[in-house]
């Protein structure tokens, strides 16, 4: 697992370097993800150590979101008179756009299947 973690940290640093040097609006972690994807395609798959490290780290993602999530309880007067707008946008808007996205995607996948191109995996 150690060598897998080293690869993940290395690609994060590579991504950050590329993003900073080229002044991309894309953050380093996303650049690193894309770079690792290309590397794995070329190499023909992930090593056991890398698979294990990534699985553990992904399983840990929810815990990493706790500190910024706690910020909600400390927003203070930025929210004066804005609670309704923010609340509706989040709680109603998110459900609407999830429904739209999923519906479009399912419809397109079914169409693809019917035309014989897509395959059930």
């Amino acid at each position: 697992m150690l060598s897998g973690l080293i690869i993940l940290f290395a690609f994060t640093l590579i991504g950050n370097t590329i993003s900073t040097a080229l002044e991309l609006s894309l953050p380093g972690s996303v650049v690193g993800l894309l770079a690792l994807l290309v590397y794995l395609r070329l190499k023909g798959g992930a090593s056991e150590s890398l698979s294990l490290a990534s699985e553990k780290l992904i399983g840990f993602l929810p815990a990493l979101l706790i500190p910024p999530g706690v910020g909600l309880f400390f927003l203070g007067d930025v929210m004066q008179g804005q609670w309704l707008a923010v609340g509706l946008a989040m709680f109603v808007g998110t459900l609407l756009s999830i429904a739209i996205t999923a519906w479009v995607m399912q419809w397109l996948i079914k169409r693809e299947k019917q035309s014989g191109k897509g395959q059930e995996s």
Partner: peptide, 26 residues
């Protein structure tokens, strides 16, 4: 750690690459 955890997503993505390529248009 959010950085490496985001990068880690490349591994499951790569495993699904063929399925993803078949569905490029959707």
């Amino acid at each position: 750690l959010l950085g490496p955890a985001t990068v880690a997503l490349a591994v499951p993505l790569e495993r699904q690459f063929e399925n993803i390529r078949q569905l490029a248009v959707p």
